[in-house]
């Protein structure tokens, strides 16, 4: 099932064109939406939420049209904005309970869900203190909790790792992965950092200047440039020569030998060559192509 689909979607602001005939679909699981600042990521999310009317084209979320079914979409979708959106003088618990009620949950259910959700995002005793005293990491967790509290089918997370330190970034990414797998909630997550999304996404959409650069499963991104890194104690040159002889494409990078993986036989070829030449193998590892590579073409 497609969680979202756009068709020739265009959004024109008085001064800029934010989206230009964007046609893209995404399935269940975690979908990354990658692009530089101003690429049109936030505009796309606002259109998908039905908050911004598109200039032309169509968009569907969970098989509902954003133009005609905005209210129904917003009942089953969660949204974590990029910007700060928390009042400082209430506690996280009060705030998330209130937001659950705004999603239509009865008061007692709202309380239960808020407690559950705050625990899942990793806010414990501090949830009773006013939000004004929270760190950036805690604020991001509260923002995430309010997006999840009504148990949506799909969440839009706009730059959730913004402003976090490396540890906080890792925690947030792990949480996003859990939302997609363990919680069973589909995720559309945006970032301008390509590298961090490939760790958590099943599918990546890359947009630039409002147009689609690429949309494909994460496996395709990495498969395309899959390679093996081989390190041996001595005898890198003979190994390279031997592998070229049997038809593998190799490149020497300092003390490492990079072998392009064409099929499973490549692994056998490397093993046989190392054995035949009687070399001491130190390292043999997968080298994933990075999402950045789509920009290097």
């Amino acid at each position: 099932m497609a969680i979202l689909a756009t068709e020739e979607l265009t959004k024109q602001f008085p001064r800029v064109t934010a989206l230009r005939q964007l046609t893209v679909t995404a399935g269940t699981g975690v979908t990354g939406l990658v692009g530089a600042n101003g690429a049109g990521k936030s505009t796309l999310i606002k259109i998908l939420l039905g908050l911004l009317p598109p200039t032309s084209g169509r968009a569907q979320v969970l098989d509902m049209d954003v133009g005609t079914h905005g209210a129904q979409i917003r009942r089953v979708v969660g949204y974590m904005p990029e910007h700060d959106c928390l009042p400082p003088d209430v506690s996280a618990t009060e705030f998330v309970v209130h937001m659950a009620q705004m999603s239509g949950l009865p008061r007692t259910a709202a309380r239960e869900r808020a407690a559950d959700t705050l625990r899942h995002v990793g806010l414990h005793e501090e949830r009773y203190r006013p939000i004004g005293g929270y760190s950036t990491g805690m604020r991001q967790r509260v923002k995430l909790a309010q997006a999840l509290v009504h148990d949506p089918q799909l969440v839009f997370l706009d730059e959730p790792t913004n402003g976090l330190d490396p540890q906080g970034r890792d925690d947030m990414l792990a949480l996003i992965r859990r939302i997609g797998s363990e919680f069973g909630i589909s995720v559309l997550v945006t970032s301008h950092l390509l590298g961090e999304l490939e760790r958590v996404c099943d599918h990546v959409i890359v947009i630039d200047g409002g147009t689609l650069l690429r949309s494909s499963a994460i496996s395709e991104f990495t498969q395309a440039t899959q390679a093996l890194a081989v390190e041996v104690e001595e005898g890198l040159e003979p190994l390279a020569a031997r592998l070229s002889q049997v038809g593998e494409s190799v490149a020497v990078q300092g003390r490492l030998l990079t072998v392009e993986v064409r099929s499973d036989e490549t692994y056998d070829a490397v093993r046989d060559a190392v054995c035949d030449l009687d070399l001491n193998l130190i390292r043999l590892e997968q080298r994933h192509g990075r999402i950045e590579d789509v920009f290097r073409v």
């Binding site: 939420l49 908050l51 209210a71 917003r74 009942r75 979708v77 969660g78 949204y79 904005p81 910007h83 700060d84 959106c85 928390l86 009042p87 400082p88 003088d89 937001m99 705004m102 999603s103 239509g104 309010q146 009504h150």
Partner: peptide, 18 residues
């Protein structure tokens, strides 16, 4: 004012509340 100042409004509008 607080909903405007702290930009809480988008959270309301991304829900069924219009």
């Amino acid at each position: 004012a607080p909903d405007l100042r702290f930009r809480v409004l988008p959270l309301y509008l991304s829900r069924p509340v219009g």
